[in-house]
């Protein structure tokens, strides 16, 4: 069962003695439903990773960094989790995110999706879906609404979209939301 896109899984392990890019490793690429599950069942659950690690699943050819030409004008829908959600919800939310990507769940706006990243951090884990053009409001909002519904987030919980250009020039906590759903 071929996927619409080939996807690359990346793993980041924070070793401070090395440059950021040297800590980023390409794990494997998948382009069928069957290969996706083979990969998923072979790797550690996100909740079992140590703090400072990331997984990223990106379309083949796009590097999981905002500097990539297909990311730099884009941004991300960011889901910030409370510490206790690592044990209760993190793996479910990340798997749901992956299924949204490989299943092309955002209709014609799936073309706008670049990938997704999960950051495992002691102060609170984060999951984000990256899209390629922060100015394409209709597409970004459609993706955000579908994504929020697929994650099963309550209407009261607001998630925000931040342009990478803003995230890159300000500290993460100060980057403002361009859109919210």
């Amino acid at each position: 069962h071929p996927l619409q896109n080939r996807w690359a899984l990346w793993f980041f392990k924070n070793e401070r003695s090395r440059a950021w890019q040297d800590n980023l490793h390409l794990v494997t690429k998948v382009d069928t439903v069957e290969d996706f599950w083979a990969m998923y069942s072979h790797i550690q659950l996100a909740s079992k990773l140590s703090s400072g690690c990331d997984y990223a699943l990106f379309k083949d050819g796009i590097q999981p960094m905002w500097e990539d030409s297909r990311n730099k004008r884009g941004g991300r829908w960011l889901v910030s989790l409370a510490k206790q959600q690592r044990h209760s919800e993190l793996d479910r939310l990340w798997l749901e995110t992956l299924l949204c990507l490989i299943g092309e769940s955002f209709e014609e706006h799936s073309r706008e999706v670049c990938g997704a990243v999960i950051n495992i951090r002691a102060k609170g884990d984060k999951i984000a879906v990256w899209t390629r053009e922060a100015e394409s409001q209709a597409g970004v909002l459609h993706i955000g609404r579908v994504y929020k519904e697929r994650l099963g987030l309550s209407a009261k919980m607001v998630i925000g979209y931040q342009a990478h250009a803003d995230t890159a020039t300000k500290s993460h906590s100060l980057a403002k939301n361009k859109f919210v759903v």
Binding site: H1, P2, L3, Q4, V33, E34, F36, W37, A38, Y40, S41, E96, L99, I102, G103, E104, S105, E107, S110, R150
Partner: peptide
């Protein structure tokens, strides 16, 4: 055509043994 798969379809494959 465009290959879209809903979550239930994808989940059906999770524990399926690989065909040899």
């Amino acid at each position: 055509g465009k290959k879209q798969y809903d979550r239930e379809f994808l989940l059906d494959f999770q524990f399926m043994p690989a065909c040899i």
